[in-house]
């Protein structure tokens, strides 16, 4: 698997990010039926996909999208403070050392086992990214089923407020602490990453 860490400044100009926006449309619009904007019938892109967003994208050797997540700065408008402030009971965590994880996306063209491997690798990539860039943790808004899986990754999670009903589902907000212990906590919970190369190496090799 190859990891690309991209910035929103590239938009759909970069093939890896373009593949991610397409995959996001397949997952969040086609599969999950979210009411979010779609560009040119192909790309799921919203107001938070701006130059301040950071993307972690896993691809195969041919550049096909396997999984991705979007990180938003919590010192700028993000999902929790803009769309779901009611999910946070105290002050919304805002810090240069905290990012919000959004659009965690596993490509549906993979089978169950492949998706799980991609998921595990992406979770480790998020922890590694935090440690490498000096982040202390993440926040995130999740539907309760997904929230149960986030807890099961074994990392250190705190609820930010009580869950709220939203249509047929229930949403909750979490903060996730990332420390040097986090990769070991993930492994202890059975979350084991695939070997990851940076996408730049892949292009070089090609």
């Amino acid at each position: 698997m190859f990891l690309t860490i991209g910035s929103g400044a590239g938009g759909t100009g970069d093939a890896i990010l373009r593949a991610m926006f397409e995959a996001r449309k397949r997952v969040f619009v086609d599969l999950l039926g979210w009411d979010v904007p779609v560009l040119a019938d192909r790309y799921e892109i919203d107001q938070f996909d701006d130059p301040h967003a950071t993307y972690l994208v896993l691809s195969d050797a041919a550049g096909n999208h396997l999984g991705s997540a979007r990180l938003l700065e919590t010192t700028r408008p993000h999902i929790l403070d803009t769309l779901f402030p009611e999910l946070c009971e105290g002050a919304i965590p805002r810090s240069a050392a905290i990012r919000e994880i959004t659009r965690f996306c596993l490509d549906p063209r993979q089978n169950a086992r492949q998706r799980r491997r991609t998921r595990d690798t992406l979770v480790h990539a998020l922890a590694a990214h935090a440690l490498e860039t000096g982040l202390t943790g993440y926040t995130g808004v999740a539907e309760t089923g997904w929230l149960q899986q986030i807890l099961a990754f074994g990392w250190d999670c705190e609820p930010l407020g009580l869950p709220h009903r939203s249509g047929q589902t229930m949403l909750g907000a979490l903060s996730i602490a990332v420390t040097p212990d986090t990769p070991a906590l993930l492994r202890r919970a059975g979350i084991v990453p695939d070997a990851v190369l940076s996408a730049a190496d892949a292009r070089h090799a090609a």
């Binding site: 309760t144 929230l147 149960q148 807890l151 609820p159 009580l162 869950p163 709220h164 229930m170 909750g172």
Partner: peptide
């Protein structure tokens, strides 16, 4: 809502 959260963390 708190039962929901307790249930998730307890499991």
């Amino acid at each position: 809502p708190i039962a929901q959260l307790v249930g998730a963390f307890a499991f």
